[in-house]
Structures are given as structure tokens and as C-alpha cells.
């Protein structure tokens, strides 16, 4: 009978994922790739917004997409129809993408240097908040058909996001959704968050979102470690 002993571990439970995410981040930094992690509830219009974004950015700089869903490759098919390369990750029973899956997807996708990599996470406002993928920014999408209190109900996600897109604004005349209240709630959990109102359907507000992407891409390009060394 062996003696019981104590092992002091102090190990971060998500340390392994964080290691994969750090490797992805270093790789994106070196290639001047802007990686954006798009998170939302199911049905917020993420894929439609992404298709419209890719259409509007076509020819300006290369874009690539990693699509996360539990099942089907329907979303990647929709993205490929825009001409952008896309890879589908089916998480099966998993409720979020993780750093390891994204690293593998990027191996297959080979996004060009200086491109924008959109990572469409599994529609879920809970789990993806905890799993770093190596992205530069999390972008949360909140549609006006949801409640204004979503940022308070799912504070971790809205606290982790640098930008919140309030989508489907074309539907506002038909709804009681209070945009100002939704924005105030997002600021309650994250006082530094940026908020933009968009409609992927009518294109309203899309230019401001594209300008944000362009600005973030320039930051990714100018932040390349090899440039700093020159």
C-alpha cells in the first residue's frame, strides 16, 4: 500500500487550449493575418453577415473563413459561393471551437499573408467565451430579434468582445427592441466595447463595419514581428 502524497499543480485548466491559441496567434502575427472570432447565438445572422462582408470586400484583400458548426457543411458551402476559401469544422457533440481545431483548419486553409481570417464560431453565447482561438478580436453579433438583455444574461461573452454588431436593424420598425437599451447593457458588462448597428440584408451600417475590419487589418499588418525587426 503506497503512501498518499500531495502534488501542488497550480495548473490552468484551459492551459492546453491557451497554448494552441498562443501558437495560432504567433503564426497570424508573423503572416500579418487578422483573425476575427465571430460569436453569437444561433440565428443572429452571422453567416448572412459574413457572406455580405465577403462580397463587399471581394478584390480588396484576401479573406478566408473557418466555419464552426456541430453538424453539416451548409455554412461553408454558402461562404464558398462568395468565392472566399472556407473550411468547415464539425464539432460533433462539442459546443465551441478550440485552439487546436482552428490550428488544424488553418493548416488546410493556408490563408495568404495579409489576409483576414474570419472564424465563425458555433452559435452559442456561453462556451466560446472561455476558449481562446488565437484571434485578434472577438466580435459578438446580437440581432434585434433577440432581447435587449442578452449582454446581461451572457456577460462573459460580451465582456470578451471588442466589437458588438447589432444586426438585422432593417427589422426595427416591426419590433419593440430598444437599441439604446441593448447598447447600454453591453456597456454595463464592457465599458470599452465598440458597438455598430448593421443590416446584412439592406447593407445599412456595413461600411462602418468594413472600415473597422480594414483598420484592424492594418494593425495586424504593421504589427508583424519581422517588420519590427527591420
Amino acid at each position: 500500500m503506497s503512501q498518499a502524497r500531495l502534488i501542488q499543480l497550480e495548473a490552468d485548466i484551459l492551459g492546453k487550449n491557451n497554448g494552441y491559441a498562443a501558437a495560432n496567434r504567433a503564426r497570424f502575427a508573423e503572416a500579418g493575418i487578422l483573425a476575427l472570432n465571430l460569436v453569437s447565438s444561433p440565428g443572429s445572422g452571422k453567416t448572412a453577415l459574413l457572406c455580405r462582408t465577403l462580397d463587399m470586400l471581394a478584390g480588396e484583400f484576401p479573406c478566408a473563413v473557418v466555419e464552426g458548426d456541430q453538424q453539416t457543411s451548409a455554412d461553408a458551402d454558402r461562404i464558398r459561393a462568395t468565392g472566399a476559401p472556407a473550411i468547415q469544422i464539425n464539432t460533433g457533440k462539442g459546443c465551441h471551437l478550440d485552439g487546436h481545431m482552428v490550428g488544424h483548419a488553418v493548416d488546410h486553409l493556408h490563408p495568404a499573408d495579409g489576409s483576414v481570417l474570419f472564424i465563425e464560431n458555433v452559435g452559442n453565447l456561453v462556451c466560446p467565451a472561455a476558449f481562446d482561438l488565437g484571434e485578434a478580436h472577438k466580435v459578438a453579433i446580437l440581432s434585434v430579434t433577440e432581447g435587449e438583455d442578452k449582454p446581461l444574461k451572457y456577460p462573459d461573452m460580451f465582456a470578451a468582445a471588442d466589437l458588438v454588431l447589432i444586426n438585422k436593424t432593417d427589422l426595427l420598425p416591426h419590433l419593440d427592441f430598444d437599441v439604446e437599451l441593448a447598447m447600454a447593457n453591453a456597456r454595463r458588462v464592457n465599458h470599452r466595447v465598440r458597438l455598430l448597428k448593421v443590416s446584412a440584408r439592406t447593407g445599412e451600417g456595413m461600411q462602418a463595419w468594413l472600415d473597422w475590419v480594414r483598420g484592424a487589418r492594418l494593425m495586424a499588418l504593421s504589427g508583424r514581428p519581422s517588420q519590427a525587426a527591420e
Binding site: 503506497s2 502524497r5 499543480l9 497550480e10
Partner: peptide, 20 residues
């Protein structure tokens, strides 16, 4: 005020294991 910056309480760690 909501102008607050979280500084602690986000930990998720295995502190120790008692093993044989």
C-alpha cells in the same frame, strides 16, 4: 459606476492533487 476593470476571479485552476 460601471467603469470597472475586472482584476481577479477569472481563475480556473487545478490547485493540487492527492494521489497514491
Amino acid at each position: 459606476s460601471h467603469q470597472i476593470q475586472v482584476t481577479g476571479g477569472e481563475e480556473m485552476k487545478i490547485r493540487e492533487l492527492e494521489v497514491t
